[in-house]
Design a protein around this nucleic acid. Structure first.
Length: 408
DNA sequence: TCTGGGGTCCTAGGACCC
DNA sequence: TCTGGGGTCCTAGGACCC
């Protein structure tokens, strides 16, 4: 008998918030948002309630959204907070208007990553072909897993859900479908803690009525453009002529959009991949000016370079393209980059190259963000990296490079 | 009182080489 | 002297995702 391709998408429910609720179960059912925050809420609470278990801290002791002042966005909101219209990626200040009484907690990345590793390890024990899609999501290929075909994947999905819950106390939602594209949409159908099974034949009835934005790959810009063409649902796209879509959205995107609307997607579940770039960036608490705040900017810039270098070294990569990113007070973004003739993971070398990039960008406007990126990565010590440069030997550093604007 | 931080992929023009 | 292509690399910006 031939196997049906069965791909699952698993999404942890309100992951960041749920992880916090494990620590503070007294907040269950209350509106809680995670995000922003440079404040050390945990430290604060621990100090104030020294000696008592975290779970004994009364809910009234927690900081509220209405008292929040800062530039952060919300990473996750509990379902109780979502009732008020608060959601991911929303600015904290806007959220505070909608739900001032919500409790705010900062992201605890270490804790989140710990649970992330745990739930992914549990999945891999059950079904080994797993693709990482960030801390709280994965695709899983059920096709050849023993029992992966039973009830279209429902039996295996249930087993995974239960295993994760038993080990962590966390819930997730799973969609199982013929491919990643449909599985991703299906996992949203029954949240939280749900399972949705879809087949090719369900595309018309279950997928076509959905808004175009539900397709993973159609974002806010394309949504607006589609609306102007009077296309609102996925079915609307499916009814269009493929050539017409290509004329309006380009060869690649237009054809992809047509396939997506018909539920066609043959991308494999990719279990391993190499990073392409590593970066660090920071948004300032207030907008800074290149001249007036030179000292502050210089220190931040050097620190960002040091942190990228650290990341590269810790993970064992070197890179050849050094880039910077600026965001102006009007939210426009500028990037500059420079490709070196050798690979590096050295903070000073990165700082020097990034400094050269800085000279090519307008520094008259106030800045709200500064970032440093290293691309064209290779594994440290790999032939790819040691072979470089291929032909001409690089000249010795002849002169000290001229200092950049943020220079000491 | 707008709008984080970490990524990937695509496009498009120009340089440069064959 | 003029007129070509094709291929690859570099750079800047932008869409999108988690």
């Amino acid at each position: 008998m031939t196997l049906l391709r069965r791909i699952a998408h698993l999404d942890m429910d309100a992951f960041f918030a749920s992880v916090e609720l494990l620590r503070y179960p007294q907040l269950k059912g209350l509106p809680v948002v995670i995000g922003g925050g440079h404040r050390k809420v945990d430290d604060l609470l621990r100090e104030r309630h020294a000696g008592r278990p975290l779970s004994a801290i009364p809910p009234e002791a927690f900081p509220l959204l209405k008292d929040y002042a800062g530039r952060g966005v919300i990473t996750t909101a509990t379902y109780a907070a979502r009732q008020f219209g608060v959601g991911s990626a929303m600015g904290m200040m806007k959220a505070a208007k909608l739900c001032p009484q919500a409790i705010v907690l900062p992201v605890d990345f270490e804790e989140v990553r710990r649970y992330s590793r745990t739930f992914k390890a549990i999945i891999r024990e059950i079904a080994p072909v797993v693709e990482d899609r960030g801390v709280d999501e994965v695709y899983i290929d059920f096709t050849e897993v023993p029992g992966g075909q039973r009830e279209g994947g429902r039996v295996l999905a249930r087993l995974i859900q239960k295993s994760i819950f038993d080990a962590t106390g966390l819930t997730c939602s799973i969609g199982v479908a013929p491919n990643k594209l449909i599985a991703k949409m299906a996992s949203e159908f029954d949240k939280p803690n749900g399972i949705t099974i879809l087949y090719e034949a369900d595309v018309r009835s279950r997928i076509w009525p959905l808004a175009v934005r539900k397709i993973n790959g159609i974002g806010p810009k394309s949504e607006v453009k589609l609306a102007k063409l009077h296309l609102h649902t996925i079915g609307d796209i499916a009814q269009q002529d493929r050539g017409w879509l290509i004329d309006n959205f380009g060869q690649s995107y237009g054809a992809w959009m047509h396939d997506a609307a018909w539920g066609r997607d043959d991308r494999p579940v990719v279990t391993e991949s190499e990073p392409v770039s590593m970066s660090r960036e920071t948004t300032f608490e207030r907008d800074l000016h290149a001249v007036r705040d030179r000292g502050e900017l210089s220190a931040i810039f050097t620190e960002l370079c040091a942190r990228v270098a650290e990341d590269l070294q810790r993970k064992g990569y070197v890179g050849r393209t050094i880039g910077i990113k600026l965001r102006y007070d009007d939210f426009r973004t500028a990037t500059r980059d420079l490709t070196l003739d050798h690979f590096t993971d050295d903070a000073k070398a990165i700082r020097q190259a990034a400094g050269q990039c800085l000279k090519r960008v307008d520094l008259k406007r106030r800045l709200r963000l500064l970032g440093v990126r290293v691309g064209k990565l290779a594994k440290a010590g790999s032939p790819d990296h040691t072979r470089w440069p291929a032909a001409a030997p690089q000249p010795l550093q002849v002169a000290e490079p001229t200092p950049d604007l943020f220079g000491p």
